[in-house]
């Protein structure tokens, strides 16, 4: 169902809702396309005319600055018209339903919706109800998926490590609440990474996470041993309130990435973080700003990857 919803009958991407179930060929095609957009950002005139005349709506039912901005930049570099709607502050508070909002925007001749919503499955829901010519890109739905973040992380790993088939990757932190982690796990296992580890206390791991194809570690020292890639996840303060963790201090001591712990990984290991970072909670500043950190390049690559996704989704119609 999920698969058929985001693919056309001939196997092309129609919507991007989750990386779960996408083929290695599709993921690789997106990464390759992104590669071709990297230099656009480095030119003096940072625009290509691929999506000229297309109307892209950023539908953010949940606040976000960075993801929304990178989608906006990506769309503008493709010469599309972009409208930002901060729905959290407008229609929904007036009692308009998601479907009403979507049909109103459809009447404004939208071609694509970039959707962020606090509920898992919200992007699926919208994709099930839009007119057939509209594509939906999930920019984060609840704890479920954040596929463009997952893709830009894969893009970053491929840039620094060249390939996936010989890597050991560790994802550290609040996997339970993380849509980013879920998308990363699907992408890593699909692209052939032989060993994906998750490192966290039991209170921050989803039930049956092993069934997603990962190895579980509770001891960070053991989990980081000989890994090629370390992905740190953001820890939100409310986790302390819900009795999942006693304190930020204890968390940092057990699961924060320090230079000492980083030394357990391979010497050329890279450190990633989807942002925004909590320095001193999940990551030490010395590591975040250190030579092994690729956190800022991730942000840059995010634009190329989002350009790739948008152009591929709207490409076949042209």
């Amino acid at each position: 169902m999920t698969r058929s919803l985001q693919l056309t009958a001939d196997g092309q991407l129609k919507h991007l809702l989750t990386l779960d179930g996408l083929s290695p060929a599709i993921l690789t095609r997106i990464l390759d396309t992104a590669e071709s957009f990297i230099d656009v950002g480095e030119r003096e005139v940072k625009k290509v005319p691929l999506l000229r005349g297309k109307a892209i709506f950023n539908l953010f039912f949940e606040p976000s600055t960075r993801t929304r901005t990178t989608f906006e930049i990506a769309a503008k570099r493709l010469s599309a018209d972009v409208v930002n709607l901060n729905i959290a502050a407008s229609a929904q508070s007036k009692g308009e339903t998601v479907l009403d909002t979507v049909s109103n925007l459809t009447a404004m001749h939208a071609d694509m919706f970039i959707v962020r919503h606090a509920q898992s499955g919200a992007a699926h829901f919208i994709a099930q109800h839009v007119e057939p010519h509209i594509s939906v890109v999930n920019a984060g739905d609840g704890r479920h998926a954040h596929p463009t973040q997952g893709l830009l992380d894969m893009f970053t790993i491929r840039r620094y490590k060249g390939a996936f088939h010989n890597l050991r990757v560790a994802i550290v932190g609040d996997v339970l609440h993380s849509r980013v982690a879920r998308s990363q796990i699907h992408a890593l296992t699909t692209l052939g990474v032989p060993e994906v580890r998750v490192i966290a206390p039991r209170t921050l791991l989803p039930t049956g996470v092993e069934q997603m194809g990962v190895h579980v570690f509770h001891d960070m020292q053991a989990g980081l041993k000989d890994v090629d890639v370390i992905i740190m996840l953001r820890l939100q303060n409310e986790r302390m309130k819900g009795a999942r963790l006693p304190s930020a201090q204890e968390y940092f001591k057990q699961y924060g990435l320090t230079p000492e712990k980083l030394a357990l990984a391979k010497p050329d290991a890279i450190v990633m973080h989807p942002g925004p970072m909590n320095r001193g909670v999940e990551i030490d500043s010395e590591v975040a700003d250190g030579p092994q950190s690729v956190i800022l390049p991730q942000v840059t690559y995010g634009i190329a990857v989002r350009m790739a996704v948008m152009s591929l989704l709207m490409g076949p119609a042209q």
Binding site: G121, G142, Q211
Partner: peptide, 11 residues
């Protein structure tokens, strides 16, 4: 269970 975990639905 594993399905809710995969879908990110609170269990």
């Amino acid at each position: 269970g594993p399905v809710a975990s995969r879908l990110g639905l609170p269990g």
